[in-house]
Design a protein around this nucleic acid. Sequence first.
DNA 1: CTAGGGTTAG
Length: 416
Amino acid sequence: MTWNAALSGCLKVGRTDFVWKLYQEMIECGVVADVDVETVGYLIQAFCADNRVSEGYELLRQVLVNGLVPENAVFNKLISGFCKEKQYTRVSELLHTMIAKNRVPDNYTYQEVINWLCKKGKGLEGLRVFNDLKDRGYAPDIAMYTTMIHGLCTMGWLGEARKLWFEMIEKGFHPNEYTYNTMIHGFCKIDNFEEAKILYKEMCNKGHKETTVSYNTMMTGLCLHGRTDEAYRLFQEMHQKGIVRDLITYNTIIQGFCKEGKIVESMNLFRELLAQGLQPSTYSYTPLIQKLCQVGAVQEAKGLWNDMKNIGLEPIVGTHDYIIIGLCDQGDAAEGMEWFIEMLNSKLKPKQETLGRLVECLTQRDRLDDSLLVLEFMFRTGYALEKGVCHSLVNKLCWEDNHFVETCLGEILEGK
DNA sequence: CTAGGGTTAG
């Protein structure tokens, strides 16, 4: 019982490393004979938390053979894990096993299924599961309604979402913080701030507190539709009201300002983020680097890139593209080429536009060999060559009176 | 201690 309590606690705080260590100690202490279905359940859940779902499933199958049947929670974690990996055959197997072993799938089980279907772009499937459940007499609870409403909002199906909202209320579930924020997010997403604000007010009137999440939700929506100034007003309001501004808050505003070209404001906010002791994420840097490159401040962009790498953050693919284009805009073909090679070494695929720009720049700088190298990659990737790029290349090749002209032209035409 | 889900960026 003591071991199990400890395992459960470690799992709860996300320290699977301690789960495995404790299990090791159990073996060393010779208490393995005491390992029961509960212990195994924790081990399976630890596998799931470590994204080693298949190993968890294997362990489940072993204990089932021995006649032990873990709790619903264990099955649910496995189902959730396989949903995340889109292994729906496994999900269906597990549901059947649950029924066969008298562990009837519950709201938590199906909520996870619906949640992941929606998150993996199968919202329609999710809705089908949801409706099937109702037809079969299951009574979805408020979390399940929220999940489904969220899925519908993400797909932009506000009408359907709203219908469920009222259906939920009719069944006696009053919207809580989660439901309100979900619905508000939905309205913001489709640029319907009137409805969003009505709901926001209603949420407050019903006694739900304004939170970091509620503010972030509104601010995200406003930034998404170019209303950055309004978002920034909310940002200041948060401070006045003493509502904590978290990483999402800062990232949202930084991105919003960058989109509008307000790079100075963005940088100030970024510094404030650091001063607050918040740990920046990849997406704190991404819009800044992008914008700096676009305004020709590649050196500064590279500085941020290095800072980012130094604290162990990995830039997203697109950031490489921005740097290369920024370098090309400055006419620095040589370094652009270096970054391109670096991308290839890291197995990253630059965008077609980036490579077109690079070819153009290399050509202008008389680096024909490099141009052809990039071209070769483009053709191999199945990228098309834009007309302008093609022109400048052909011009240069003819001008040079290069005796490879014909071969090169042949290749270019073949590629097209 | 023994069971857990849903909201905000990218």
